[in-house]
Design a binder for these strands. Sequence first.
DNA 1: CGAAAAGTTGATCTACATCAACGTGCGTGG
DNA 2: CCACGCACGTTGATGTAGATCAACTTTTCG
Lengths: 280, 280
Amino acid sequence: MPLRIDGQRSPLVAHLRCAIELTDAEIAALCSFTSGATQVPKNEALEREGEPRQAVQVVNSGWAIRHKEVPDGGRQILDFVLPGDIVGVEGSVVRRADHTVTALTDLEVSHVPFGRIDTLVREHPRLVNALIWSAARQQAVFAEHLLSLGRRNAYARVAHLLVEVWRRLSVRGLAVDHTFRMPVTQDVLADTLGLSVVHVNRTLAQLTRNGLAEKQRDSVKIVDLPGLVDAAQFDYGYLRDAPMPDEMLRNLERRPDGPGGGALRLARSRGPAAPVGQGG
Amino acid sequence: MPLRIDGQRSPLVAHLRCAIELTDAEIAALCSFTSGATQVPKNEALEREGEPRQAVQVVNSGWAIRHKEVPDGGRQILDFVLPGDIVGVEGSVVRRADHTVTALTDLEVSHVPFGRIDTLVREHPRLVNALIWSAARQQAVFAEHLLSLGRRNAYARVAHLLVEVWRRLSVRGLAVDHTFRMPVTQDVLADTLGLSVVHVNRTLAQLTRNGLAEKQRDSVKIVDLPGLVDAAQFDYGYLRDAPMPDEMLRNLERRPDGPGGGALRLARSRGPAAPVGQGG
DNA sequence: CGAAAAGTTGATCTACATCAACGTGCGTGG
DNA sequence: CCACGCACGTTGATGTAGATCAACTTTTCG
């Protein structure tokens, strides 16, 4: 079973390193988290809205969602929790979770009791920065998602989500040449993007038709990254502290009048969408 | 000029106290922030997306908005910054702001240089909790807003926003008997709620017609709080750490079959809205 | 007082939801 | 190994919340 003590291969370390410089000692300390990992089965909750948290948790592998329920049965998915993400960072101050986190796949999770966080921070004070950074990044993701729901149409929303997930994964070394695992049903996508399943399906089909990206059951293949970024009205500046992989920057260079997407129109907020060939 | 050294009257202290117990020494330390206040004129930015922050800022009086721009001129307002709110808490770790903060009215703002934060925290370590709490609360507000945009219809969104603002203000002692200042145009409301100005106007009119709330140019009067809460699908549990004022709890007790709103229908997510008398 | 900003109201359009089948892959048990 | 069942995906027809367009009124303020 993949208990990775090797800091170079830990998604958590890979992702923190984007923003924060870490010494070997700090990396070793972080990896000591990962050593005691437990399995969480699919569909089980890591923490539940309104209930007290048990510990800070680090997801070593697998996907989860952060979500909230609405009185009449609906749910809104706030964000995906990817390998390397921390759940409940603010737990030592705010004990009750304000949203639920549920496993989308089987998970390998490390629990870090609050007391141990204190110890860790006392021994490596600079690691507080990592925690604060993680919380801030989380907030930035929420903000960007808010922008999506408020101001982008379905086409741009889906495109944006794909780019964002790709970016987050590739920083952690989990996306090779524009292809990555994404164990997410259209139903989940719908609840993330504030759309109906049917419309997600159609939008996905359109992205494929336009040669931008292809979503299979468990994976995504981004065919034309610049085109997708364009369709997403993606702000490359966002999450500035997580530098974009060289590869992405390289790809973006050929943007002005990029290949493949000749006729691609920008879907515009609130305005007419025109994402090429809606009428099937 | 209202330079409040009295901790009892500081919105910042009032709002932190909801969640964190503060000693007199800590309150005094916090108030030392407030002493050196500067004026920020309406429409000026406190911090700008992508630009480095100068300091942590505390808004002593006035309103501001957190917002993001979309390439084609649109903007999404993420949140309102109310008196007592902190802007850029995470600044000492994440220097670049990920969204813009702009004054909606003239503001009285205290700047707290990052270095001074360090000092403060060293002298009063428990105050870190206050900062983390503030960041977490911010995130909870974003999450709730996300739920609104993704899963509530216009009627519920507007209602929810009014309740939320009321709640946040009343905790700080800035809302007397369901009436409070809200210097927010319908245009700003629209950009907050992901709606058009026209539709905001109509929805506001509807809330008035249904006897729930009345929004004047610069203020709001909540007429039927339980009704409004109901229409908003408001989750009283949310922001659990900020206990609801007794008054609200008292009001909610008469809820099951509350007064005034006899015919009031719950506007439901994605489903048919039926907020009483749409057709003019 | 005049002009710009904010609010109001009606007519029309459309992006997306809802409803309703139907297709397809996949895991479980016989 | 097949078959049954279920979760997931796909597709078409129709409905609607809310956008857009276009005046017009009222308020604010220099």
